[in-house]
Design a protein around this nucleic acid. Structure first.
Length: 104
DNA sequence: AGGTTGACCGTCA
DNA sequence: GTGACGGCCAACC
């Protein structure tokens, strides 16, 4: 799987995350591990930084349910807009975590 | 070619 | 709850 194909796979998966649900960067990496042969949450983060605007980037959060300060305010607004379960200013991962295969 | 830098993560203290 | 460390892999000097 070439780097470009990996980017496509990531965007495709992120695009399938239901409204009000989220996946962590690591969960996205894990979900594609078998098909891609790599497991790098950091790589998924880089891809989202570059191509996130093309998909629902606010539905991919870090393992703590938060987002980096630069985009935290915008992300929070979007979470509120679609009813994502929150806890303080972070996503409630226990309630909002989605895994591919659920709800298909 | 080699070093640094990320929208990261699990472990350990 | 916090902070340090090592692993991760592509992009960019």
């Amino acid at each position: 799987m070439t780097p470009d194909e990996y980017v496509e796979a990531v965007l495709e998966l992120v695009d399938r995350i239901p409204l009000g649900r989220v996946m962590s960067y690591g969960a996205v990496a894990d979900a594609l591990a078998e098909r891609s042969g790599r497991t790098s949450a950091r790589l998924v983060g880089s891809i989202m930084a570059r191509h996130g605007a093309e998909v629902g980037w606010h539905r991919v959060v870090n393992a703590s349910g938060a987002m980096p300060p630069r985009i935290a305010a915008e992300a929070r607004a979007r979470w509120l807009a679609e009813g994502t379960p929150l806890r303080q200013d972070r996503v409630d991962m226990r309630a909002a975590s989605w895994r591919p295969g659920e709800g298909v």
